[in-house]
Write a protein that binds this DNA or RNA. Structure first.
Lengths: 327, 327
DNA sequence: TTGAAAGCGCTACCAA
DNA sequence: TTGGTAGCGCTTTCAA
């Protein structure tokens, strides 16, 4: 790798001058610039970002902390973030926390060590205290309003919509899966759901679930169908869980959606690939990622932020695990 | 952020000594070490990785280039890589190339600028020439043997297995989807498939497909069912495509697997969530990621590598879009 | 308009 | 066993 010194030498100028053309700063005469540019080309010189970062005390790197990229919700989020950051010349350093504090802390430290200019965290145990000493712009994603800067979608309303749509479509004995209690967004939507259900005239019951795992969800589904064989509507805590329930229901020969309606949450890509395709509450996942990146970039640039908490709207995606609404 | 200088001052020693305890190198007396460690704790000092990287001319960063993290094949790959790297204290800088040369080159440059110690590339246009001037350890993932170091699975054999299993299970008019021609691994498996099919006594036809997109695949499926209504076995180029075909088939009321058998490729997580669950050829995706990371780490450490090309075995996953094998 | 030089935080050599 | 110090590659004063 060529260095700035070599370029300077070849161009017959000082390193200061080379630096100036590199950064388009200060005065450089046209022909001097030309000489330098030629030398750069000749040597295939690429400025060393590390040296630059050391001096400037900031890099072009952004840290991204996710629970698990393997969970289909997160790749889309990550993609939104990346696409937005890339436009502005920032790059992603990324880690999966597995919801383990140790890993989370370890990654945060790594990010800091590497002079990241900002941080986006979508983990659930993202306790404020792990972050506040950082003196770095931080944006929390998919998490609630108690934090400084955050981007999330309207979980409560999403939960309400799910309940309303199911009622509107004629379910009368609804089963609600609560979702893991440590996953805040899941609890939000759950609250919204039971709020609406409580005000309605339908029967409903709540199943406490502890994970989003497909296999466990299948077991719960089995249990539900045994205990409440006449349940005619299920509100799942997310699309994976909904897939599992759908799977079990089909296996048991239930008619979907005539006998049983199922509604998911998230609208991950695969939900439309199921058969029947899954009706669900759509979070604008990709857009959430983009938005978070945008907020972070503004923060990095020290721009004014109109609102520190951005709540995006959710919507009902009417596919084939729900019936047509009654007029 | 505290610096080594401040630690040295507080501990009443020189920066050299602090550096020694930091790196466990050279001689440090027990009580001196203690003083230093206390100062470190007191100041919450974390060594600046950037400065270290500048001096050492290498970082703890590894670059990862993927086509698109949103494609369900890649998160698992990424996870395998990350888990393995993390054990050894390496971290991931990552980018999606979207199979665009410009983006690919841009990311490679960024990686180099940031002193990455190594590179893992899983892109399809990964032309050797874009990489060979890099003088960096590089491992190609999910790609063929023409490259220096690579980890991939046995695509040809996978293609063969798919054909054999379908024949064994009684399909007699098989349709093969060819998969995008620029995706080398897809072509490998296609070769394997037609090799076996050609030696057999079954009829078969090949459909040229140009993408892995679900929607396009649905359209092809429709076309297939129109043109070849008596096709009784489809070998898809991957699981997404297979999902689309399954979807269309179910929509048309075909009995799966009695009337039509479908076999996918990859065994991404969601394939088991489909109903009927998808029979497919399993690539050990996570393991491939791990293996690639392991090779890269060996390369970084300058260890001897027994084999530069690691080919992992694939296997048939017998689920519910294929029938039981005839005795 | 240019160059000399200090210094970002760290490591490693050499001398003490 | 310790400290002084040069230098990694760059940016940015300050002076010329």
């Amino acid at each position: 790798m060529a260095t700035i010194k070599q370029v300077a030498k070849l161009a017959g100028v000082s390193v200061a001058t080379v630096s100036r053309v590199l950064n388009d700063s200060g005065y450089v005469q046209a022909d001097t610039r030309k000489k330098v540019e030629e030398a750069i080309k000749q040597l295939d010189f690429i400025p060393n970002e590390v040296a630059r970062s050391l001096f400037k005390k900031e890099s072009r790197l952004v840290g991204l902390l996710l629970p698990d990229i393997t969970n289909p919700f997160f790749p889309e989020l990550a993609r939104g973030i990346e696409d937005e950051l890339q436009k502005e010349g920032y790059y992603l350093l990324f880690g999966n926390s597995d919801e383990k504090l140790e890993k989370e802390l370890n990654y945060i430290q790594t990010f800091v060590k590497n002079n990241v200019v900002g941080l986006i965290s979508a983990t659930n145990l993202a306790d404020k205290s792990n972050y506040e000493h950082l003196s770095l712009p931080i944006v929390f994603l998919d998490r609630g309003p108690e934090c400084e800067y955050s981007v999330f979608s309207d979980g409560k309303e999403g939960g309400r919509i799910a309940a309303r749509e199911l009622i509107k479509r004629g379910s009368e004995k609804i089963t609600v899966l609560k979702g893991p209690s440590h996953v805040l967004p899941a609890q939000e939507r759950f609250q919204g759901t039971i709020e609406v259900l409580g005000q309605s005239n339908v029967d409903f019951q709540v199943i406490s679930t502890t994970s989003f795992s497909f296999l466990e969800a299948k077991a719960w589904a089995k249990e539900i169908f045994e205990k409440y064989p006449d349940t005619d509507g299920i509100i799942a805590s997310n699309d994976i869980t909904a897939s599992a329930i759908l799977h079990e229901a089909l296996q048991q020969g239930k008619a979907i959606p005539d006998e049983l309606q199922i509604i998911g949450y998230d609208d991950i890509q695969q939900s439309s690939l199921l058969f029947p395709s899954l009706s669900t509450i759509r979070q604008p996942i990709y857009e959430m990622g983009k938005e978070a990146a945008r907020v972070l970039i503004s923060l990095i640039k020290g721009e004014m932020i109109e609102q520190s908490q951005i709540k995006l709207a959710v919507s009902f995606v009417d596919r084939n695990t729900t019936r047509k609404a009654k007029e």
